[in-house]
Nucleic acid binder design. Structure first.
Lengths: 195, 195
DNA sequence: TAGAATATGGAGGGACACCCCGTTTCTGCA
DNA sequence: TGCAGAAACGGGGTGTCCCTCCATATTCTA
């Protein structure tokens, strides 16, 4: 059951304007940006913003949806890569990179749903989890990762790192370094270099 | 050069009241709590709060200072423990546990200084870093950790995990699990169980 | 093209951070 | 002890923010 009825033309127009303005403002100022500023920049009353997006979270999800879809597509592409370990590792790296460069993405992806609204089934969170599942399964089969680690744990770590890195100068490099550290572990490897 | 002149009696009294109120409110509501609510509960005008603590960060730092001191003391205690690896690991666990149970602590410890005020030399951040340094050095000497990992990286990871865990139900357990994962690494160990 | 359905946005309520400045409270000194 | 000036206080104002109501305007449909 898709939308019962197509949006009215002006509604659609304002929706799109809001989304564009939100993307711009969030890119500039992060996910805490003022909603009124977004409405203002979209040339729209704040009531309209609130009608289209009942909560900040919903707005962010709409803003980030296509970025998330890109990541999911990347996962599909990598699903057939020759090296399952490398596939998983570079996908996680991509997730981290996206999260760091789009401030607030990590927080959005973190939680299942914070407003009491359970109907947000296909949230960004679950989309990412499902996309990663396949990569992890293959890597595990290749014995490239411990058998007791789940995709949710892995993604939580990646998001944690992004959360920490996104507020620091040169967050991308930091996230990258920390991710490698996490994958290899802090303790030394008994023999030779890892990988 | 300590404070040029001792605080006036009423100033000292209000300072203490504010600190106590802030500790209570932050424990209840997290680090985003309303500053006016804190002033209100301290029975003090909001201007007074702002005079004593020019920024939210400063207030949080004062609130968390004794918790941080506890952690630093723990580091000193552990400095002579028989097992350097275990000492480091359990100290990091303690840091994570504190950060998770005191919402906002992690964020406070994360950054060096966000207001342009460089005179906050002995911030919580540097206190913790210095406390950890010794434990890491000993663990490294015992070849219990990789030689290329720094205490700042390690603490950043711990804080990242705390940041992610503190907003989830059962954050303590989650943080613990993730920390173990990070220490051991996601990749499997070539031989036998670690430790 | 008229009426119904839908969408809009200005205005306003409540909360907040932060600051100005007249008033009150201390303290050091005579 | 008493008092002058320094130090601290806090009521109230400003500007911002999130969110909602409802009179008005736009779009759709027949």
């Amino acid at each position: 059951m898709p939308s019962e009825r197509p949006m009215r033309a002006d509604a659609r127009r304002n929706y799109d304007r809001l989304l564009a303005a939100a993307a711009a403002v969030v890119a500039e100022q992060g996910a805490e940006a003022s909603l009124e500023e977004i409405a203002r920049r979209a040339g729209v009353g704040s009531a309209t913003l609130h009608r289209h997006f009942p909560s900040r979270r919903r707005l962010l999800e709409a803003v980030f949806r296509d970025k998330v879809e890109t990541l999911c597509a990347a996962a599909t592409d990598l699903a057939g890569a020759p090296d399952p370990e490398q596939a998983l590792v570079s996908w996680l790296g991509a997730v981290a990179a996206h999260a760091v460069s789009n401030r607030g993405l990590a927080a959005s992806l973190m939680v299942g749903s914070d407003d009491g609204d359970p109907l947000v089934g296909a949230t960004c969170h679950t989309m990412i989890v499902e996309a990663g599942q396949g990569l992890l399964a293959r890597a595990r089969q290749a014995r490239a990762v411990r058998s007791d680690v789940s995709i949710v744990e892995l993604l939580t770590l990646v998001h944690a790192i992004s959360l920490a890195a996104e507020r620091q100068p040169d967050g991308a490099a930091l996230a990258d370094r920390l991710l490698t550290l996490v994958l290899d572990g802090v303790r030394p490897r008994p023999e030779g270099p890892p990988r």
